[in-house]
Amino acid sequence: MIINNLKLIREKKKISQSELAALLEVSRQTINGIEKNKYNPSLQLALKIAYYLNTPLEDIFQWQ
């Protein structure tokens, strides 16, 4: 199972779901689904999230 800290990191950086979704060219619902662990992002999307949040990938997504 993958645990993610996306919501915590996104809120710490004061970025809304809508703003992050626009940067990543995905829907706000996609961001919401990832934050709620409804599904895991593709590797490409995970890397883009880490890039736009300027945060190491392993700080956002962790195996458990």
Rank of each mutant, 00 (worst) to 15 (best):
E25F: 08
P56F: 04
L6E: 01
L24F: 03
R10W: 02
K12V: 08
W63R: 04
Q17N: 04
E25I: 06
E35L: 02
I49D: 00
N54Q: 13
K13I: 09
F61Q: 01
W63Y: 07
G33R: 15
I34L: 07
Y39Q: 11
E35H: 01
I3S: 10
Q44Y: 10
E35N: 01
A22P: 02
P56I: 06
K7Q: 13
I60C: 03
N40C: 11
M1Q: 06
L8Q: 15
W63L: 05
Y39A: 10
Q62M: 09
R10N: 01
N54S: 14
Y51C: 08
L8W: 09
S18V: 12
Q17S: 07
L20C: 02
Q64D: 15
A21Y: 02
A50I: 03
W63P: 04
I3E: 08
N32I: 15
E11A: 09
L23G: 12
L8A: 15
S18D: 14
E58A: 10
Q44D: 12
A22S: 12
M1Y: 07
E35Q: 02
K12P: 02
K36Q: 15
R10H: 01
Q29M: 11
R10I: 03
Y51Q: 12
Y52T: 11
I3L: 15
S18N: 14
A21R: 03
L8H: 14
K7N: 06
D59W: 10
A22E: 14
Q64K: 10
K48Y: 05
N37V: 03
L47N: 11
K7M: 08
A50S: 11
Y52Q: 09
L20T: 01
K12Y: 13
A21F: 00
L6G: 01
Q44A: 15
I15F: 10
I34R: 00
E25W: 07
N4Y: 01
T55L: 07
Q29R: 13
E58R: 10
R10K: 01
M1V: 10
Q62L: 08
L6V: 05
I3G: 07
I49V: 06
L6R: 00
I60E: 01
Q29P: 06
I60V: 07
Y51P: 01
Q64M: 10
P41T: 04
R28H: 10
I3Y: 07
I9A: 07
G33E: 15
Q64E: 15
I49Y: 01
K48S: 08
T30G: 03
Q29H: 13
S42D: 12
A46H: 01
L20W: 01
D59S: 10
T55W: 05
L57C: 05
K36S: 15
K38D: 12
L24E: 00
Q29K: 14
P41N: 01
L8S: 13
L23Q: 12
N4C: 04
S16D: 06
S16E: 06
P56K: 09
Q62I: 10
N54I: 05
Y52L: 11
S16P: 06
L8C: 10
M1A: 06
N40V: 15
E19V: 10
V26I: 13
Q64V: 12
K48R: 14
A22C: 08
E11H: 11
D59N: 10
G33P: 01
I49Q: 00
Q62V: 13
A46W: 05
L6T: 03
I15N: 02
A50H: 03
A50E: 04
L47A: 12
E19T: 12
Y52A: 14
S16L: 07
L8K: 14
W63S: 04
L6I: 05
N37T: 05
A21N: 02
K12T: 13
L53H: 01
F61V: 02
K13V: 10
K12R: 13
N5Y: 06
L57H: 03
S27H: 11
K13W: 07
N40K: 11
N4L: 02
K36W: 08
L23D: 09
A46G: 09
L6P: 01
N5A: 05
K48H: 05
P41L: 07
K13A: 12
E19G: 11
G33W: 13
P41F: 04
Q17W: 03
Y52H: 13
I2K: 09
V26R: 04
P41Y: 03
Q64G: 12
K14Q: 12
L6Y: 00
L47S: 10
E25T: 08
E25V: 08
K38A: 12
K36I: 13
Q62S: 10
L6M: 11
I60Y: 01
Q17A: 09
Q29D: 15
L45W: 03
T30D: 07
S42H: 08
Y39D: 07
T30Y: 14
S18P: 07
L24P: 00
Y39I: 14
L53W: 03
G33S: 15
L6K: 00
P41A: 04
I60P: 00
Q64A: 14
Q62T: 09
M1T: 08
P41V: 12
T30R: 08
Q17M: 08
Q17K: 09
Q64R: 06
E11I: 13
S16R: 08
M1L: 15
K13S: 10
L47V: 14
L47R: 13
I2P: 07
L24C: 09
K14W: 06
L6W: 00
R10V: 03
F61T: 01
K38C: 10
I49H: 00
E25Y: 08
K48T: 06
S42L: 04
A21M: 03
L45V: 06
L23E: 09
Q44F: 10
K48G: 07
R28G: 09
E58D: 14
T55C: 07
K13H: 12
N4W: 02
M1C: 07
E58T: 10
A22G: 11
I2R: 10
A22Q: 12
G33T: 09
K38W: 15
I60S: 01
Y51E: 11
L53P: 00
Q44I: 12
I31R: 00
N4S: 04
T30C: 11
A21V: 03
E19M: 12
P56T: 07
K13Q: 13
S27Y: 03
P56V: 05
S16T: 15
R28Q: 15
E35V: 01
A46V: 05
L53G: 00
S42I: 04
T55M: 09
S27A: 07
L45H: 03
V26W: 02
P56H: 07
Y51G: 08
A22L: 13
Y52C: 07
I60D: 00
Y51W: 12
P41I: 10
L8N: 14
L23W: 15
N40A: 15
V26L: 06
W63C: 05
E35I: 02
T55Q: 06
I31S: 01
E58M: 07
E19P: 02
E35A: 01
L23H: 13
Q44E: 14
I2S: 09
I3M: 15
Q17D: 05
N37D: 09
T55N: 04
L8F: 14
Q62F: 07
I31T: 02
S18G: 14
A21S: 08
S16Q: 06
Y52S: 07
L43D: 05
S42E: 06
K38S: 13
Q62W: 06
L53F: 08
L53A: 02
A46S: 06
L43V: 10
K38P: 02
N37G: 14
Q29Y: 11
K38L: 15
P41D: 01
A46R: 05
T55V: 13
N40P: 14
K38N: 12
F61E: 01
L45I: 08
S16M: 06
V26Y: 03
Y52W: 11
A50T: 04
L57N: 02
M1S: 07
I34F: 04
W63F: 09
Q17V: 14
E25D: 13
I3W: 07
I2G: 05
N40H: 12
I9C: 06
K7F: 06
N40E: 15
I31E: 02
I9F: 09
D59G: 08
N32V: 15
L20Y: 01
I15V: 11
P41W: 03
K7E: 13
L8I: 15
L45Y: 02
N37W: 11
Q17T: 09
I34E: 00
R10L: 05
P56N: 08
N4M: 03
L43R: 10
L8T: 15
S18M: 13
S18H: 12
Y52E: 10
A46Q: 06
T55G: 02
T30H: 09
T55R: 05
K14V: 06
E35P: 01
W63M: 05
L57D: 02
V26N: 02
L47Y: 12
K13M: 14
Q64Y: 08
W63I: 06
A50Y: 02
Y52K: 06
Y39M: 09
N4E: 02
P41H: 02
N54F: 05
A22K: 12
S27M: 04
K38M: 14
S18I: 14
Q17C: 05
S18R: 12
L47E: 10
I34Q: 00
N37A: 08
N4F: 02
F61I: 03
I3D: 05
S16G: 09
S18E: 15
I15T: 04
L57R: 04
Q44W: 11
L47Q: 13
I9D: 01
I60H: 00
G33C: 11
S18C: 08
